[in-house]
Simulated scan of single mutants.
Amino acid sequence: MHVTIWHNPACSNSRGALKLIRDAGFEPVVIDYLDSPPDIATLRQVLAESGLSAHELVRSKEQSFGELGLADADEATLLAAMAEHPRLINRPVVRTARGTRLCRPPETVLELL
Rank of each mutant, 00 (worst) to 15 (best):
A76H: 11
E49G: 07
G69L: 12
P105R: 08
A97K: 09
L88S: 09
A54Q: 06
P37Q: 05
A54R: 04
T100D: 08
I89E: 07
H7S: 14
I21R: 00
V29Q: 05
V58D: 11
G25M: 07
E56I: 07
L70K: 11
L43I: 10
G16V: 04
C11I: 00
L20K: 02
L79Y: 05
C11S: 14
R101E: 11
R15V: 01
A83W: 14
I5D: 03
S53V: 04
E62A: 10
A76K: 03
M1F: 06
R104A: 13
V58I: 15
E49P: 11
L70I: 10
P92Q: 10
L78G: 07
W6V: 01
G66Q: 05
C11T: 02
A83M: 10
I21Q: 02
H55F: 07
E62C: 13
P37D: 07
M82A: 13
L110A: 03
N90H: 11
A83I: 06
D23G: 02
R104L: 14
L68E: 04
E107H: 04
N8F: 00
D23I: 02
V93D: 01
P92H: 08
W6Y: 14
T108R: 14
A10P: 01
I31W: 00
K19C: 00
P9E: 02
P9Y: 02
V109T: 04
D74N: 10
R15F: 01
Q63L: 13
A10H: 05
A41V: 06
V3E: 05
R98Q: 15
A97E: 15
V93M: 15
S12Y: 07
V58S: 10
A73N: 09
I5Y: 04
V109H: 09
A10W: 00
A71W: 13
A48T: 09
T108H: 10
G69F: 12
A81H: 09
V94S: 12
V109Q: 04
E111V: 03
S14V: 00
L102H: 13
G99D: 13
L78K: 13
T96C: 12
T42C: 05
P28C: 03
D39M: 04
P9G: 01
A81W: 15
L113Y: 08
E84N: 06
L47C: 14
L47W: 10
K61D: 15
E75F: 08
L20P: 01
G99Q: 14
V30Q: 00
N13C: 02
L57N: 12
W6P: 00
P9C: 03
E111T: 13
V94I: 11
A71F: 11
